[in-house]
Design a binder for these strands. Structure first.
Lengths: 196, 196
DNA sequence: CAATCAACATACTAGTTAGTATGTTTTGGT
DNA sequence: ACCAAAACATACTAACTAGTATGTTGATTG
């Protein structure tokens, strides 16, 4: 039983890596089973289709990481604005799970699979909404605490922050250099300061 | 001769549409020739490979539109800050060439093809740099004219503006609604105002 | 008016794809 | 130790993929 669920985890983790690097459609099942040393029979025992595996990656790999790294810190911080900045900084420059040249896993999948795959769209919609909500609510708390201007619209800022993060990850891919992250982070700091 | 170059244009335009909607890898040559009514012989007479066609799309379809829509207006405006806003607004809400549910063509291609395809990376790098430079230079002009604060860093703002635009187009795809564009535009306006 | 070549058309191929059919092995409960 | 079911293994298939080989047109040009 432990061995079986281990096989499943191996498939999910390795598949995630391949998909994160090359995209969902460019990653074939043959390649997955070759790199994992798992046979096709085992693969299709654990996942009915490739798409079912893709959804499982979102829910069982990306989602838990996202909750731990993107959401919980925002819910527990006493200084949301500072947390948004340091979180972004660490996501761009320190997080060993994310790679400069491969962008943001959720952003990548969203762009590739939406809108033509309904199942993926739904799963990603949920994922992204949860992040957005976390930012929004942390900003509302900051508003209550008087840490930011009363004229600040939390929802708008949440959109703006996530959008800019997704976008700069795209820049990172295209330029294949962290230089753009430095410039971006400086501007993000300026922007966040204007909210005070 | 006019007929031949017409065939080429037909292939490029229809291919662009398909690729814009479904992505490069998900668009097969068989599908392209089926929808264009062009035969395989004709296709491969005009383009040596699929990748060659992809590069041609960037250079002959996307680039001219980008220059006309994204760059020239910035070079001729007297009020860069206002132009950046109205341009973004019209790209998101009015431009009939861009569709809510399909994101930004350049952004899509950048994400899908970078970093594993060097040729695409180069072509896209050029494309994006030209837009970024246009924003940057228009902001430098605004700086000279005293239209924005002296402490504003043009390069940083250019990164921030383009990033947020790419990102919000991703949101548009995921949410499949222009509502997020409204919130984004309000925040973009606020942000741009802080540069004055 | 014939020859030439650009511009297409058709039929094919070799490789890859997701998925299946049909097995064999391992594992846990009795 | 035995048996059923879970967990895996192997060999296959049908559809699709980019690309090619080998044609046929139809317009120019000497």
């Amino acid at each position: 039983m432990a061995k079986a669920s281990n096989t499943r985890q191996t498939i999910l983790k390795k598949s995630f890596e391949l998909i994160y690097q090359k995209g969902y459609q460019a990653t074939s099942i043959d390649e997955i089973i070759a790199t994992t040393q798992v046979t096709k029979g085992a693969f299709y025992y654990h996942f009915k289709t490739k798409d079912a595996m893709g959804i499982a990656i979102i829910n069982e790999i990306v989602k838990p990481i996202m909750e731990r790294t993107y959401i919980t810190p925002l819910q527990t911080t006493l200084d949301p604005l500072a947390e948004i900045y340091t979180m972004t900084q660490s996501l761009l420059l320190e997080n060993s799970f994310l790679k400069l040249e491969y962008g943001c896993p959720a952003g990548n999948l969203a762009q590739e699979m939406t809108p033509w795959n309904v199942e993926f769209s739904k799963a990603l919609h949920q994922l992204i909404t949860s992040w957005q909500t976390a930012i929004e609510e942390s900003l509302l708390k900051a508003l209550e605490n008087g840490q930011i201007r009363k004229s600040v619209n939390a929802k708008q800022v949440a959109y703006f922050v996530i959008s800019s993060y997704w976008g700069i990850r795209n820049f990172g891919k295209v330029y294949n250099s962290t230089h753009c992250y430095d410039d971006y982070l400086l501007e993000l700091k300026s922007y966040l300061d204007t909210l005070k």
